[in-house]
Design a protein around this nucleic acid. Structure first.
Lengths: 214, 214
DNA sequence: TGAGAGAACTAACTAGCGTTAGTTTCCCTC
DNA sequence: GAGGGAAACTAACGCTAGTTAGTTCTCTCA
């Protein structure tokens, strides 16, 4: 199949593009709620409002659909994190603002942390290639940043990775444990107020961890 | 094909009680690795070394088996937490030692945090009845404890629940994100050294959060 | 206007799921 | 030894999974 030597003036079909997006939306919701194994193509097709075999006009199979959902979902988060890390104005990025930015971003896409958590439990094999090109440099960068901050005086260089893991677990965990939190605390941690309140707390928490001790 | 009757001096025919335990062990490993939907009774039976229908001599169905796994697994953790909370020697429990105790306990049973995380993602409906009788009083108790500590001076009473959620997410997340952590950091966070190192870090982290500021 | 491609459909297949029925085997007790 | 029950087995069920084949509709463009 030749890759269309001349540029197509107008995309061949637009209706197909739209349904592809709808399928991705539906699949994202299903996979986020019930995981890969717990999601059936019937679930997805029913949400979209089409028959199961029609899905195969847009994605090769269930796994390809899942990979596409993951890739589309992770894109924005990775670029936000990437931009925040590579800002590099000499000054180190304020953890308070970074954590608030992430919380706000994920608050708009609460499916994402669930997808990521399911993926990690499953071994993270679909996530690894997505992260490989971003997370490694980001870690190297953030390690460099962290080491140039007063925090290193408290934590020591070999404890820096744990700060990153903690950051990750707090943010992702806030979303994946929301059902438990809500049933125990009463208020919804995914509501606007819940997100604002928790973002404030997590931001202050990390700021206090990073800042120098006396 | 009959399995060669002449050999097998002691056929691996086990007594029911033992088999039930073996089934629970196998099911715990399977459910922890692949979740409820991702686990098949064939997986479990193969690990135990029996046929699928034999499982039904010990558990009513797949869901009952899952509930039994969860209940057996959660027991020790709940009692440790419960004991630690209700110690109540007037003094508040040292978060450093509590977090180390939990990390050590879960380090011996790394299936548990994964089971819990899968459960929470699925809605936590099987977990709720187990936690209802323990977690609520524990939260009330720990809130009382926290409020009597210097920590409240820094965090304010309404932020106490977030301290608990953070505690939970850090400890559980350490285990559920181990695959990612290992592939990125190089060393295994579930090994003896990894656990010791991380317990130390998390303990210090929480101690520094709880202690008074200036 | 007619050809072709995209995207929906119906129908059907295979494989595997959880589950049940009925049978056999072993061990313990009388 | 004989009887009974626990626990293993074989065989088969109904259902649903993901997937494929083949058809129809419709829109775009030459």
């Amino acid at each position: 199949m030749p890759p269309s030597p001349e540029i197509a003036p107008t995309p061949p079909r637009r209706r197909g593009q739209e349904t592809s997006e709808h399928i991705l939306d539906a699949a994202e919701a299903c996979f986020a709620r019930k995981g890969y194994a717990g999601t059936t193509l019937r679930n997805v097709a029913d949400v979209v409002g089409i028959r199961i075999p029609s899905l195969y006009n847009h994605f090769a199979n269930k796994e390809a659909l899942y990979a596409a959902v993951l890739e589309r979902g992770m894109g924005p988060v990775l670029s936000v994190l990437s931009a925040s890390m590579e800002d590099g104005s000499g000054d180190y990025p304020e953890p308070n603002s970074l954590i608030r930015e992430m919380m706000m971003l994920l608050g708009d896409r609460p499916n994402l942390p669930r997808l990521v958590q399911y993926e990690l439990l499953a071994g993270g094999h679909h996530l690894a290639p997505l992260l490989e090109n971003w997370l490694r440099p980001a870690i190297a960068q953030s390690m460099k940043i962290l080491k140039s901050t007063p925090a290193v005086r408290r934590w020591g260089p070999d404890q820096m990775p744990y700060l990153l893991v903690t950051f990750f677990n707090i943010v992702v965990g806030h979303f994946t444990t929301a059902s438990l939190t809500e049933s125990l605390m009463g208020n919804n941690p995914l509501s606007a107020e819940g997100l604002a309140e928790s973002s404030k707390f997590y931001g202050e928490l990390f700021a206090s961890l990073i800042e120098a001790e006396d």
